[in-house]
């Protein structure tokens, strides 16, 4: 528990990041406590269809007679899961490629940098769409895979650049003379010195994963039976929520996506300030 608090402390100290942290914690709580917060089940189709917001149904009901508010609360789980897992995987991939490329100049670096450049240049969303379109199965795993494959390159480039400057430091040379293996030097000596950059990479990857997942699900490339914010928007669009005046159904999922994205960006401000003291406010 104390380790948990220590990790969160820098985010609490910065005022903007504190707001972001609170929003994220509220959403995590909502995801865990979903059955307590809402009396209905997200898949219960026994309500009258296409109701406007009321006391029974805060955000109205869907075409199939599901409660929108309940879907929104349960959808938090899927969005957090995709954002977190895809963010972690993309960061891990970026770390491995970036750190190895940065530490091993010459052929290894050339090949890995070239790979990074290819993925930086190929536009992400069209590539994601095409990968998802060719795939025989649909669902969250596919979306996580596609986002990871397309999302690691930016982090790898940033991390590589940092390693190339850290490589020349004395403590790295000392570790090398002590006979430490390359993996140990890279992950135990160098990486802890750029932990803020790793955190920033993770937060950035998580934000783009959440946005990309929402986009892919909205395009119908996710599993339409899974409850998530993106699929909610997909169903809202495809059952004419717009023309029926179901504003709450349209508004709420997108607002939650934007709020979660903003919260993570705000937390990133704290990380930025750790890494770049110039961004700290004067006085």
């Amino acid at each position: 528990m104390s380790a948990f608090i220590r990790v969160l402390q820098p985010f609490w100290r910065n005022k903007l990041a504190r707001v972001g942290l609170i929003v994220v914690l509220i959403m995590v709580a909502a995801a865990i406590l979903a059955p307590v917060i809402t009396p209905y089940s997200p898949n219960d189709t026994n309500f009258p269809a296409m109701l406007g917001p009321s006391w029974q149904h805060w955000l109205g009901t869907t075409q199939n007679g599901q409660d929108v508010y309940t879907q929104l609360v349960y959808g938090t789980r899927s969005s957090l899961e995709v954002g977190f897992v895809a963010g972690v995987l993309a960061t891990a991939l970026a770390l491995i490629i970036g750190l190895v490329a940065g530490y091993m100049p010459g052929v290894v670096d050339e090949v890995l940098s070239y790979l990074t450049n290819v993925f930086l240049v190929i536009p992400g969303l069209p590539l994601m769409i095409i990968l998802a379109a060719y795939a025989p199965v649909k669902g969250n795993l596919l979306i996580i895979f596609v986002i990871t494959v397309t999302g690691w390159a930016w982090g790898a480039r940033v991390l590589r650049a940092q390693v190339t400057t850290l490589r020349a430091r004395d403590y790295v040379a000392a570790a090398r003379f002590a006979g430490d293996s390359m993996l140990r030097i890279v992950f135990r000596e160098i990486m802890p010195n750029m932990i803020s950059l790793v955190a920033a990479t993770f937060l950035g990857a998580a934000v783009s994963a959440i946005l990309a997942a929402a986009g892919l699900q909205f395009l119908g490339l996710g599993d339409p039976s899974i409850n998530s914010w993106g699929t909610m928007l997909y169903w809202a669009q495809n059952s004419g929520a717009l023309l029926q005046g179901q504003w709450a159904w349209l508004f709420a999922p997108g607002f939650c996506i934007a709020a979660l994205g903003t919260a993570l960006v705000l937390m990133n401000f704290a990380v930025d300030e750790m890494a770049n003291p110039r961004l700290r406010k004067k006085g």
């Binding site: 986009g215 909205f218 809202a236 023309l243 997108g254 607002f255 996506i257 934007a258 994205g261 960006v265």
Partner: peptide, 22 residues
């Protein structure tokens, strides 16, 4: 701008259509 840059493009488009067209 921190908030708007986290908007899903398509969601903001949906909201704009709803408000300004519908």
């Amino acid at each position: 701008f921190t908030f708007t840059s986290s908007f899903p493009y398509f969601w903001f488009a949906l909201i704009s259509v709803f408000l300004l067209s519908f």
